[in-house]
């Protein structure tokens, strides 16, 4: 079973040289720490920056330079700044190659719910609905089951949706799964030491799995 950094490490292996990538808040943010050596990736922050660098050194924080999580950050050689409309323009017109974001639920037809829990204070969707509606390639990083032990990979989402029929790949602490075009989850890889049966039990949605599913390679 993987920890959060393990999930981030596995997702980092999906990033190809030359990709423009948008990372959501939470586990997706950790992916930046594991981008393989020798691969050139440009991180987009939807508040208006391409080429997001690491946190500034202490004392060098700039209140005018933040990421979409409102954290102080830095630019890199080749960075560019733009306004919010242009930022979502490059998202809608699919100039961003890969979007990685968290989720509360994903359904077997690729619907995602990640912004609202009825009865709880709603903070808002931020840019998530724009990202999932337009991105050509979305990977969800999430826990396979919730704190109550219930599967988050479902036949149908129970929470209010963020987007429909848009998720193609999911990485959890247990597995890598593809969402099949005709519906259903296909088990691609197991986390080290996790059995297919265990993953089957943790997945309420329709799961397609061979008897012999390879373990993830993390490095």
């Amino acid at each position: 079973m993987l920890d959060k950094d393990g999930i981030a490490k596995r997702i980092a292996r999906e990033i190809k040289d030359g990709f423009y990538v948008n990372l959501g808040i939470g586990i997706p943010t950790l992916v930046a720490n594991y981008i393989p050596e020798g691969i050139n990736v440009v991180l987009q922050s939807e508040n208006g920056l391409l080429g997001m660098g690491p946190f500034p050194f202490e004392g060098e924080e700039d209140a005018d330079l933040i990421n979409a999580g409102k954290q102080t950050i830095t630019t890199l050689p080749g960075s560019s700044i733009f306004d919010s409309a242009m930022s979502f323009g490059m998202i809608r017109s699919q100039k961003i190659d890969l979007t990685i974001l968290g989720a509360m639920e994903v359904s077997e037809n690729g619907d995602i719910a990640n912004w609202k829990i009825p009865g709880k204070m709603v903070k808002g969707m931020g840019g998530a609905m724009d990202l999932v509606a337009s991105a050509k390639n979305i990977i969800v990083a999430m826990q396979h089951v919730n704190k109550a032990g219930e599967s988050k990979l479902l036949p149908k989402c129970t929470l209010p949706l963020t987007g429909v029929n848009c998720i193609k790949k999911i990485v959890t602490e247990l597995a890598v799964l593809d969402v099949l075009p005709g519906g259903g989850f296909r088990l691609i890889e197991r986390a080290p030491g996790v059995s297919v049966d265990y993953i089957r039990q943790a997945t309420t949605g329709k799961l397609f799995a061979d008897d012999d599913v390879p373990e993830m390679i993390l490095n």
Binding site: S87, F88, V122, M125, M129, D130
Partner: peptide, 13 residues
């Protein structure tokens, strides 16, 4: 009224 961030920006635009 909560609306998607890109929708907010583009309705301004």
């Amino acid at each position: 009224e909560l609306i998607p961030q890109g929708t907010l920006a583009t309705r301004c635009m």
